[in-house]
Design a binder for these strands. Sequence first.
DNA 1: CTGTTAGCGCTTTCAC
DNA 2: GTGAAAGCGCTAACAG
Lengths: 348, 348
Amino acid sequence: MTKRVTSHDVAKRAGVSRGVVSAVINGTPGIRVSEEKRREVIKAIQELNYSVDAQARSMRTGRSGCIAAYGNLDNPFFLQVLQGAQRACTERGYHLLLYGYNRQESKQALIQLYNQRRIDGLLTKDVTGFADEEWLASVRAAGLPYMSVEGYPEQEEVPSVLLDYGASMDLALDYLYGQTGLPPVYVELYSGSAYAPNWGDRNRRSAYEAWMERKGLVPAIWQQPDHDTDPQAWDEWLGGLPLPSALLTNWSRGGFLIYQAARRLGLSIGKDLYVMAADNTMRANAYMVPPLSSVEIPYVEMGEAAAYRLLDMIEGNHPQAASKIWIPAVLEPRESTLLAGEGGPQES
Amino acid sequence: MTKRVTSHDVAKRAGVSRGVVSAVINGTPGIRVSEEKRREVIKAIQELNYSVDAQARSMRTGRSGCIAAYGNLDNPFFLQVLQGAQRACTERGYHLLLYGYNRQESKQALIQLYNQRRIDGLLTKDVTGFADEEWLASVRAAGLPYMSVEGYPEQEEVPSVLLDYGASMDLALDYLYGQTGLPPVYVELYSGSAYAPNWGDRNRRSAYEAWMERKGLVPAIWQQPDHDTDPQAWDEWLGGLPLPSALLTNWSRGGFLIYQAARRLGLSIGKDLYVMAADNTMRANAYMVPPLSSVEIPYVEMGEAAAYRLLDMIEGNHPQAASKIWIPAVLEPRESTLLAGEGGPQES
DNA sequence: CTGTTAGCGCTTTCAC
DNA sequence: GTGAAAGCGCTAACAG
C-alpha cells in the first residue's frame, strides 16, 4: 500500500504552504492567493493525483456533507423520492445515505447518526398524513435538521413537502367530466377492516363532494375495503350502473378492481365505462389494458424540493418562509377515458 | 451550541484513560480491561450520552464504513437491489450511499469517491450483460473493491451477481407446459431497430430452443420490436394462432402487447390464450387483468448477495472462491395461465 | 497577502 | 493490565 498523497505533499510540490492549498481547493472567501501560486497548486494537485480526504475535512469542519433518506424500501414511490433527493444532493455537492424500514432498527437510530456526525440532516418519506409527536420531540431535542415528505400535514411548524389532494381531485374531475360529460361516480377504497380514511383520502373525498356541489350534481360514492374484496358486491354494483358511466377511484388499485369486475361482466372500458384513478400507487396505470388515466403524485419533484429545503436549513439559508411546500399533482390522460372515436380501441 | 462530548470526557468521568474507552467501545482484541472499569466506562457513556464521532474514527482507521450503490434511479428494480444491499449493510454495520445516473457525472466520479476515502467499496446495478473494459481498468487501477449486479457475465474474473436465464426459462416452460399441455410459443421482443439481443435474451432464446428440442417439439418464435409496435402485425399473427395457445414472452411488456392485441381481437386470456412472461420489467404483472404469470428475478436477494460479498472483499474475508454468484429465478404463477376450471375468471 | 500552527476526536503503539 | 502520547489530514485563526 503506497502512502497517501496529502495536502502537505501538494504544498511542498507547489512551493506554498498547506493553508494556501486548502484555500485554493475550497475557494476560501477571506483568503486571496496570487494567480501564479494558484496555478502552481492546481498543477501539483493534478500531477500528484491528489484528492482531499473527506473524513479529515469533515472532522475539521464538523460537517459530514451527507444527508440521510429514510423510507419504505418496498414502496416504489420511495425510489422516486430518492431520485429527486439524489439530484438535489449532486447539484449541491452533498451525498445521500439510504436507510429503510429494517427489522426493528427504530427511527431513533437515525438520530444517533446525527449524534455521530455521520449526517447533517434527515429526510423521511412518510405515509400520507403521518404524524408522530414523540419522534418530533426527539428530533428537536437532538437539533437535527429534518424534512418530511407527505408527513405532518396539520402541523404547520414541521417542515414538510405535501401534495394538495383537493386540487388533484379538481384536476381529475374537471378532466373526466370534460371528456365524458357524465357525472363522476367516486369509488373510494379503504384499507383495514374499518373505514378510517387518512388525511389524503379525507381531502379527496371532501374535494369530490365540493366539486359535485359546485356543478349542481349529486355525489355518488361507492365505498369498499381494499382487502378481502367481494367480487359479487362489485359485480352487482357495477352491473347496476347506467351505461356509460364515469368512475373516479381514489387509489389506482380501485382501477384494477373495476377492470376485473368489468371483465367478469363483459363490460368494455372506454365504451361502457370511463375510469380514472386519483393516484398511481401500483405504478401500473400505464400498463393496464387499456391504460388507466390518472392524476399522479410527482414524487421525484417532492423529493427534490424536500432535499433542497433541507440543505438550505443545514446551511442556514432557510428563508424564514412557511415551512410547508405544496406540490401540484400531474394529470396523465390515457386510454381509459378516451371516447371511442378518439383513437381508443376499435370495438369491432 | 454546546460543546461536543468526547471520549476524553468519558474517560475523565469514568476515571480511566481514553485508550480504555476506545477499547471498551470497539472490543479491541488485544486489550483486556477489567470488568469493573468496563462498567464504569459504559455508565459514563450513558450518563453523558456520548456517541463516537464517525469522522474522527474514520480518519483514524482509514475506513469510511460506507459503500456506494450506483444504478438507474428510473428503474424500479434498482430499488430492490438497494433494499437487499441496505439490509446487508445494516446487518454488518455499514452505511449505504446512493448514486444514480445523473447529468453526465460519469462513473469516474465514483472512483473519486474512493480516492476521497468516502467509500470503502462500490456496487453497481448494470443492465443484463453489460461490460465495460475501460471502466474495469479504472477500478483496478484505483484498487476499488467492486461488485456488479447483472454485469460482466462473460468475464469470469470480475465479481458479479448473475441470474441464470437458461434455468429461468426451463422453470417457466416446465410450468406453462405442465399447466396447459400446449407447445409454448416464444414471443421475443427486442429494443432498438435492429435485432441485437443482449446476453440475457440470447440465453433465454437458446434455452427455449433446447427445451423444445428435448420435448420433441418444434420451436415457434415470433419476434417483434419493442417500440413502434405495429398493431396490425400483432393482430394478424395472434389471429392466425390455433386456439387455445400458450405464449411465453421474454419481457413482461410482451404480455402487455399480447393483452392489447387479444382485446382488439376479442380473445380471452385464460381461455383462448395462456400467457406468461419471463421477467417482470414493468413491475405490473400482478396488476394486469388477469394477473400475468411470470418467472421473476429476485433483485432483493441479488443486491443482498452482492453487498455481502463486497463487504467480505473490503474486510479481506473474501474466500478465494469463484467470483460469480448465481441466483435462481422465482416462479410466480398467476391467473393468466390458469385453466378456466381452476378459479380463473368465470366466462359466462 | 502568505506562512505557521493549533487543534478536530479518535485509535493504537509503546512504555510503565 | 493500564496509561500516555503520537499522530491521521485537514482547515482556520493568527502571526508575520
